[in-house]
Design a protein around this nucleic acid. Structure first.
Lengths: 198, 198
DNA sequence: CTCATTTCTTAATCTAGTTCAATGCACAGC
DNA sequence: GCTGTGCATTGAACTAGATTAAGAAATGAG
């Protein structure tokens, strides 16, 4: 069992389904490894032609609302999956931007290589279904919280859940993710720092 | 091609994948048709042991937050799918309530019958994946809007998108769905009625 | 080092939305 | 026919959070 570039992604997919080593070999053979500097991986209007696993780096996914301001949908860090599921599968133009915030290494699938993978190793159907399912559960959760909880609680939950992200992205990105103004987030932080977290 | 109770659900699943009539027969044979009066289909703490297609009727799915107030996650009407995907698949206790608001007829699958369906007609993998995908897209959309749009716009979009629901459920359910207080929704409606919709 | 750009903070003013309380309304039970 | 109960409306007082504008602090390029 020597270590390989695929160790992390193997562990990731093995969480839900157990694969034979020859199945993993097919998997590896179809992966397109690519490194990106700070750049756009997807822009509004383009069709998303990849689903990718973040092996290292950091990304943000956002869209621009009718007032022209950015709304951040999600961050991506190591061991997360990335892409616009809908655009990818329906091959329709996306309304999202996906941008790398750091140098980022991705393990990418195109619609074709994904199809090939599912054909050759149908067990991956389950992996991808579970990915979407977890994504759905997380999104629902965030929706409930954004409807029913005040900004300070949402911020506290955010830093508990993703403790590494605040050190890696500008604070106003987090404000956007939480759906509040950067000024207000700053106030919340000030209050928390003074009040000993309360 | 005589008409059957399954006409609507057949059309629903045929949207994304085309099935042979013998495949649909397997599908039909595994469906559990059940009628419910006003009742709970799922309560917090229970494991969700069904995924169901609403053939007729109306439901609401909600959870109760730490202040003890209900937050409505979604409504269900004819031709929609229902269930707690996460609880169903992981067989873990749900934190949701699912309640019928009207007499409701469901076409239900248990984990076992769903498994059997997927085994006998693997094409249904795709159907269910697309269902989750659409659910995810809708939830994401709602999240963006709830973050970036004022309540009045959200309400207007709601009645455009689901014109039949306001006639079927009490108004304060809609307020809860939109994440606002019932009083404020009432004010919005008052304003819209006066201002000729603006 | 210096200048420019972006990020963060602080404070004043303003607004969308909440909470509380009172009132009206409809429909069910008897 | 009343009478209770849940639902919608309305208004007054309040608050979370937005907006604007300014200054401080950090980052980065030449």
């Amino acid at each position: 069992m020597s270590s390989s570039v695929f160790d992390h992604i193997d562990k990731n997919v093995n969480r839900s389904v157990t694969f034979l080593s020859e199945e993993l070999e097919v998997f590896h053979s179809l992966i397109d490894i690519r490194k990106f500097p700070k750049t756009f991986l997807l822009q509004e209007g383009e069709v998303c032609n990849f689903e990718g696993y973040i092996n290292s780096g950091c990304t943000r996914t956002y869209y621009i609302d009718e007032n022209g301001s950015e709304v951040i949908l999600q961050f991506g860090i190591e061991d997360w999956w990335l892409g616009d599921v809908t655009s990818f599968h329906d091959q329709k133009p996306s309304c999202l931007f996906i941008e790398t915030i750091e140098d980022t290494e991705l393990f990418m699938f195109s619609p074709e290589t994904k199809e090939e993978l599912l054909f050759k190793v149908p067990k991956f159907e389950r992996v991808f279904r579970l990915l979407i399912q977890r994504n759905l559960a997380a999104t629902q959760n965030r929706l409930f919280h954004s409807i029913s909880k005040p900004a300070q609680e949402r911020y506290q939950e955010f830093i508990e859940k993703y403790p590494t992200i605040p050190q890696r992205v500008p604070q106003h990105y987090i404000a956007s993710y939480l759906g509040i103004s950067p000024e207000f987030l700053s106030k919340i932080r000030g209050k928390m720092a003074k009040g000993g977290k309360g």
